[in-house]
Nucleic acid binder design. Sequence first.
DNA 1: TCTGGGGTCCTAGGACCC
DNA 2: TCTGGGGTCCTAGGACCC
Length: 421
Amino acid sequence: MFALVDCNNFYVSCERLFQPKLYGKPVVVLSNNDGCVIARSDEAKALGIVMGTPAYMSEGLFKQHKVKVFSSNYTLYGDLSDRVMKILASFVPKMELYSIDEAFLDLSEMLYHDLLDLGIKIRKAIMQNLGIPVTVGIAPTKTLAKMANRYAKKRFKDVGVFYAISKELINEMLQATDVEDIWGIGKQYAILLKRNGFRTAKDVTKIPAEWMRNKMSVVGLRLWNELNGVPSIEWEYKPKDKKNICKSRSFGFSTSDISILREAVSNYAAICALKLRNQNSTCRYVNVFIHTNPHKPELKQYQGSITLQCEKETNLTQDIIGYALKGLDIIYKPGGYIYMKAGVMVLDLVTENAVQLNLFDQRDRSKEKQLTATVDKVNTEMGQDTVRMAVQRFERRYRLRAEKLSKKYTTDIKQILKVKI
DNA sequence: TCTGGGGTCCTAGGACCC
DNA sequence: TCTGGGGTCCTAGGACCC
């Protein structure tokens, strides 16, 4: 048996914790650069504010209904997420962190009798200890647990729990779920299924397995099994090491100045290198890309991207920055192109100690590694970016917009909540 | 008329997720 | 003025091998 626990409107709930007057009011949280709406309170949903729409398009609605708008504050959300997960871990021996606001719990060793009020207990514990509302779905497979969670939100809002653990209840849920709301069915597959006359999840369970295999590949077959109650998605108790790491951002503005691109790219490269070291990996390739603003067809468009092979697998900041800047020089096109976004990817990652030694290597990498380790230590203790490479500069001229940012209430002592008595 | 039959590795692109 | 960022998995097709 699986439980899927999911925080309701997570980012909005985080913001409300520190501004209780926002309960019952419409609240939204925007993506990086204050670009799109990525979280909405129930009140905001009711106003017809759509997920993923550009913020400027909803400006009218925001004003008209006095919607409280926040820039995203990942430091805060990440910290509160850790706290939610810790509470969940106290209920079960094994669980899987699925996203910043969701986790699957392994209930295979739980007694039926204990299962029955588990959802209620979890909700209560997280509400009491943190004040974050969550929803719980319980079912025989991950896909059905996801669906049970959704169904609980739709039909049993106040209870916040749905147990899809009998044939009848599973059937009821399958019948009430449209194909496009199944976890794993996106836009394209929804169109395909509907075109063939399959409307609900229940319909999908009755499709011949070969049809699913042929039209939707092994992914479809796995999904079909899951819907039919046969667990087919593996547990991932420990997050897997990443196979690729990417750091990219749209700037808060557009520019054709290569010195700004160099600054951004070197900072992204440094972050990639740090992420590599944090998972004890090195990379064999470095990719750098830049592009103009595709939403402005009246401007000259260009997308440049290049992947460079590293002379030797590496995770040293100076190496990754070096390759990224070399790539940037190759792909940068002057002459009226206005760039809006840049990014660096490190590819084909291998575990650090598996790297072969190169007898002909002229550089003293052990010294460089020691230096890097020291820099990492200083930065961890004194704050990120205390020590940095010269090309990274300090001004962050490419920095993005975040005009409505809340405070780091839980992770920075200077920004802690003050209570007036 | 008829144009082998396996493999592997790589890349690009599609589909999906939060 | 203004449209996120970071991932995964799978398949098809080409290049190459014997």
